[in-house]
Computed example of a mutant assay.
Amino acid sequence: MLAALDARLTDARPRTLRAAHRPFVEFLCFGIKEARACLFAGLFFLAVFCVPRAGLGGLPRYDVLLVLALAIQAWMLAARLETWDEVKAIGLFHAVGFVLEVFKTSVGSWSYPDPGYTKLLGVPLFSGFMYAAVGSYIIQAWRLFDLRIRHHPPHWMAALIALLIYANFFTHHYIADYRWYLAACALGLYARTTVVFRPLDRDRRMPLLLAFMLIGFFIWLAENLGTFMGVWRYPNQLGAWSAVHVSKWSAWSLLVIMSFTIVANLKHVKARVHVPD
């Protein structure tokens, strides 16, 4: 069923629509494609919402979430909704995210208060899938929207800023936080970059920086859901839940830039990235 849906969603044959109807039809198709691109993230966070804190069948919640995340990933691969190359990229997201989680919990930025058999260095292994969900979304959206990137900066510059963004998540605990300097560099680097996407049968354009900010905002909303459900907690949420500070939106937006850079270097999408001479 999903393969048939994907075939229809990626069918770019011209449609005959009235001018007054086209914006609404394209917006509807855009929403359907977005929901489809969020398949892994949606199923994963549905599991986060539905699995009780006590776990299931004597298995702690964190371990149940790991099993479900692996099952969803295996199903998507078996159903050919993802390729092996894409799974490898998602595995890289998992590893990068898990290393960050281990460091952040060690310095007290947040914690995972519940027990679990699959906790390593105080961090449950399922946590890396929260970062993998971002990578899965970008990969799926790239295919469904037939994304093409215009005026992308040189790949070595994009890779350098991505590495510096990742490093700053660690180093700001020991030296100054250079987040806003890095954001300014990213702003200059991607100022001319646009993403060309196809909601239905016509190409539309959006500044890539705006896409980064929008994705970061929705991840921030998902993070609020995760802390509300008690999957992890910030120090100020240990007594009673409160909304995650809005400054985390900027951190997530920067993380999206790093994630996008990884995806942009996949062999089968790199051909759609235009780097000016």
Results as ranks from 00 to 15, higher is better:
Met213Asp: 09
Ile215Asp: 04
Ile139Arg: 01
Met1Ser: 11
Ile138Leu: 11
Trp232Thr: 14
Phe27Leu: 05
Gln237Phe: 03
Gly128Ile: 01
Leu266Val: 07
Leu65Val: 10
Phe27Ala: 13
Leu39Gln: 00
Gly116Ile: 08
Asp85His: 15
Asp114Arg: 15
Cys185Arg: 04
Tyr117Lys: 14
Leu209Trp: 07
Phe197Ala: 03
Leu28Tyr: 13
Gly42Cys: 02
Lys104Ile: 04
Val256Ile: 10
Ser247Met: 08
Trp252Phe: 12
Ala222Val: 12
Thr261Phe: 14
Gly58Pro: 07
Leu189Arg: 02
Leu144Tyr: 00
Gly128Ala: 05
Ala184Gly: 09
Asp277Asn: 11
Trp110Ile: 08
Arg202Glu: 07
Leu9Glu: 03
Arg143Phe: 02
Arg53Pro: 01
Tyr166Ser: 06
His21Met: 12
Ala240Asp: 05
Tyr131Thr: 14
Asp201Cys: 06
Ile165Arg: 11
Leu214Tyr: 02
Arg18Met: 10
Phe49Ile: 15
Ala162Gln: 06
Val134Asp: 01
Leu81Phe: 00
Ala184Thr: 14
Ile175Leu: 09
Thr227Trp: 01
Ala184Lys: 08
Ala167Arg: 14
Asn168Pro: 02
Pro154Glu: 15
Leu209Pro: 13
Arg202Ala: 08
Gly128Cys: 04
Leu121Arg: 02
Arg204Cys: 04
Trp110Gln: 08
Ala54Thr: 15
Gly122Thr: 14
Gly226Val: 04
Val256Thr: 02
Ala19Phe: 04
Phe44Gly: 01
Gly58Gln: 06
Ala183Gln: 07
Leu125Val: 05
Leu121Tyr: 07
Phe228Asp: 07
Leu5Ser: 04
Ile165His: 13
Ala159Asp: 04
Val263Trp: 01
Thr83Gln: 00
Ala35Trp: 03
Asp146Phe: 05
Ala251Met: 14
Phe170Ala: 11
Thr171Tyr: 04
Ser242Val: 13
Val123Ala: 03
Ala176Asn: 14
Asn236Gly: 01
Val102Arg: 03
Asp146Glu: 12
Leu182Met: 08
Val134Cys: 08
Ala79Thr: 00
Ala243Gly: 05
Ile90Arg: 03
Leu5Arg: 01
